[in-house]
Design a protein around this nucleic acid. Structure first.
Lengths: 136, 136
DNA sequence: CCGTATCCGACACGATACTG
DNA sequence: CAGTATCGTGTCGGATACGG
């Protein structure tokens, strides 16, 4: 995947030479994007809440991914000037169009993670150091 | 995004400790996975045909991604012992469950690539070397 | 036609420490 | 609470060359 820091290589000033489909997909394809987008699609979510909901993410990656999603117009960041600070992230309408598909993919992964794991084991066994029907 | 060469960190022998959802998603999240899976979901596709359909992919990355998808049980690789060789890739039923979502996401990217590009330009302009209302 | 091998630069990502 | 700064490692992925 691609880069969290990815940007369109095409001249950004010319709208006709906008992101390619692949470049647009990179934002969704990131390691943490799907989880974050799902969490932020049902309503505003605070930073720490995201940190809890997206299991395994580091503070750094959460920040970076949030910034990139914001930059691409998929998330809106709202800062409440209170103390302690309160920052909320919300999916934009454009991002919310992805919600159904994202959830579908997420559930697919849940359904099949064991099958995938098993497939890997089987594949690795068969393709391990050419050992087909060993002699005697 | 994690590795093309990614594997479940959990003990693969214990089915209860199968891939996490995130690990399962990595396979779909790869730079080229979506394009390849879409192409292979409507029927068997040959190697060279994929090379044409998935725009911009290198031969190396095509091979690597195909191997990984095969390893995870998302693709079946069939070799016809003819000359010249003929190799066909087909999405498994498990992978085909993703088809609708994948196509939806792909179309989403097509629809919004200009908006995303524009959002990037706007964001970069505003966040460029703190230059808000420059003096004189 | 369908790959594999190797080299190598660019980041993605995690760990850790510090802050308004 | 919500970040940022810095460092280190892994590996993604392109370029190139070769092979059955």
């Amino acid at each position: 995947m691609p880069a969290q820091d990815n940007r369109c290589e095409s001249d950004p000033v010319d709208p006709a030479r906008a992101c390619t489909v692949r470049e647009a997909l990179d934002r969704v394809g990131g390691k943490w994007s799907i989880g974050i987008l799902i969490a932020a699609s049902t309503g505003p979510v605070r930073f720490t809440e995201l940190e809890r909901r997206v299991e395994g993410i580091s503070r750094r990656m959460l920040t970076l991914t949030l910034r990139n999603l914001e930059r691409d117009g998929l998330l809106v960041r709202r800062v409440h000037p209170t103390v302690p600070p309160r920052v909320e992230y919300t999916a934009t309408p454009m991002a919310r169009e992805l919600y159904e598909s994202l959830v579908a993919i997420h559930r697919w992964a849940e359904r099949h993670r064991e099958a995938i794991s098993a497939a890997r084991v089987a594949y690795d066994r068969e393709h391990a150091v050419v050992k087909t029907t060993p002699p005697v």
